[in-house]
Design a protein around this nucleic acid. Structure first.
Lengths: 345, 345
DNA sequence: TTGAAAGCGGTACCAA
DNA sequence: TTGGTACCGCTTTCAA
């Protein structure tokens, strides 16, 4: 059974296609010059046939597609669901649909998706660039064509951006650990691409240097983005002698793995080991023990990105904007004074 | 700057629009009747202009849109990210894009989204119905038009479906708890709509009855789908006298909250309290303690759904299929013998 | 207040 | 091997 088209409706209602169009778009339309009687006839026909206008045809003719693309690196990381959630809230409220994709941290995937999005003629794109250099070529056409592009976490090209400033809060979490007496602080750096999370890494290094502590590369564990990666990385770090007394992980997700590793080694958190991380996703407060984390709300990031998109769509000439979200340290129970007993050393 | 169209390419290459079309679709095209020389000229022009064919126009003329919609109830629940991941893997491999939406457990949202998807003329829909009755009207047109629809977790109308059978494994987890000596087993039923998860609830009830144990409604905590909801529900359950010695939660996500509640009340798991749940998402194995869970792999569900869609797209006349995925109990460390000391009673 | 008709950017048939 | 051209389903002047 074929779908009814505008023409079918027109025929049934005994009017022209234009009239149907007018009725359908009555609100947004410019003129309301349809008599109540015809309107009812058309509406009646619409109901009867179950007519749904074709969004493709409509957008083909009239420009906008009412869709914004959202590209995140990894749907397995809860932080990004929060971003999705935030953006969806903001955009759907204003009648935009979201085209969500995750690159799964695969550069080819990212290329392919960016291209698919481009062919769909999305109105705007919100993107966390994981392969910056790669994507430059893909993004440039969009920018040149004045399609709103918002980058997350990073300023690239001449686009609006939403960024979290980890500077202060990052310093704070390090001071927090240092103040608690920790000297050997491991860092778990597990991201899917070299371009991600470098600022958080920098904060770690700088804080050590400023505290006159050596930056021991052996204490920096690079790993993948999966839970198992975080778990293994923590295991490696914690089996060193002397063993680190604190671990800082690049995100909450990996901290879950680290927490598990500690437990596996019979280390009590925070008595034997402190753990802190970045993101402060919803689950951080519900882990055992509740996780000290540097808050960088995904929902907020998503919402802001949505807002930037909407505003630029409304006013293309707006000057470039970079929204800074200030991260803030949330101290919970996973960090504590360094244990007196350094027995294993 | 306007986007280049097919006509621009044709002009620059000095050929007709038809020729450009042939070159672009060379692979899928029927005839390879383009001379290498013209081909190169066209390709050259495409590069030069950065031409990207318009997916809307293309699909308008040629039917398929190469898109399947995926509708899940709640992106905050890790189980559903796994479903998304699985479906994406399967479908993107075959050139289909995914239009992902979450209803956020809001019936209006679900209606609105179903409608948006319909106007986009998606090729197929994979959907977890959270508001069954509501959605019937929306889904029926799709089904009538022979668009492939796959429902998840539930058979609705005449559609393909992927379902997890919790029967055996559900019985197993209850036996597991019963065998460990638990008599008072609380159930945390936190879903966003009454239609979700009823089969898991049924399994709980039946097992109790078969064990000649009373079904105490006070031990069934109904709550929302958020972490905080699971936490509060567990708190309520655990403050009863006598206190339940085991908790079964409807999914892993809520179990995280329950685990936290136990910790908050200074109950050791599994010494003082056993906790088991459904789903067995990736994180279950990394919680403290690792969670006993009834495995119903989201990735598998997503993949199967994708497969059903692809097969039906290829062969519309296929008989209706219902894929049953057998859940299986994964015992970890969150369940144990009931404590001898019933001191608090 | 309504209708006729010219596109939007492609595809695919038919002819050359 | 290529070009001409009638659509796909809708919006939007312009006239009536």
């Amino acid at each position: 059974m074929k779908r009814p088209t505008q023409a079918d409706v027109a025929r049934l209602a005994g009017v022209s296609r234009a009239t149907v169009s007018y009725v359908i778009n009555e609100n947004g339309g410019n003129r309301q010059t349809i008599s109540e009687e015809t309107r009812q006839r058309v509406l009646q026909a619409v109901m009867e046939l179950g007519y749904q206008p074709d969004a493709r045809a409509r957008s083909l003719r009239s420009g906008g597609v009412n869709t914004v693309g959202l590209l995140v690196p990894d749907l397995r990381n809860p932080h990004y669901w929060e971003v999705v959630q935030g953006a969806e809230d903001e955009l759907q409220k204003h009648g935009y649909d979201l085209l969500i994709s995750s690159t799964s941290l695969d550069p080819n995937r990212e290329r392919q998706i960016l291209q698919a999005l481009s062919q769909r003629r999305i109105d705007a794109l919100i993107v966390t660039l994981s392969f910056l250099e790669q994507s430059r070529a893909l993004l440039e056409p969009l920018v040149a064509r004045n399609s709103p592009v918002v980058t997350l976490g990073k300023i690239a090209f001449d686009t609006d951006a939403v960024m979290t400033s980890f500077r202060n809060a990052g310093r704070q979490v390090m001071h927090h650990l240092l103040d608690l007496g920790h000297q050997r602080i491991g860092f778990i750096f597990g991201v899917g691409s070299p371009d991600l999370g470098t600022n958080r890494m920098a904060v770690y290094r700088e804080a050590l240097i400023q505290a006159d502590l050596p930056v021991d590369e052996a204490l920096i564990a690079r790993c993948g983005p999966r839970l198992e990666d975080g778990y293994q990385a923590a295991l490696r770090l914690l089996q060193q002698t002397p063993r680190p007394t604190a671990l800082l992980t690049i995100n909450d997700w990996l901290a879950v793995g680290a927490l598990r590793a500690a437990s596996r080694l019979n280390l009590q958190v925070p008595r034997d080991l402190s753990i802190a991380s970045f993101d402060d996703t919803e689950m951080a407060a519900y882990l055992n023990p509740p996780l000290t984390s540097v808050r960088s709300s995904g929902e907020e990031i998503g919402r802001q990105a949505g807002r930037l998109v909407l505003e630029r769509l409304a006013t293309p000439a707006l000057p470039l904007r970079h929204v800074q979200i200030e991260a803030n340290l949330v101290v919970r129970e996973s960090t504590g004074k360094v244990g007196v007993e350094s027995r294993r050393q």
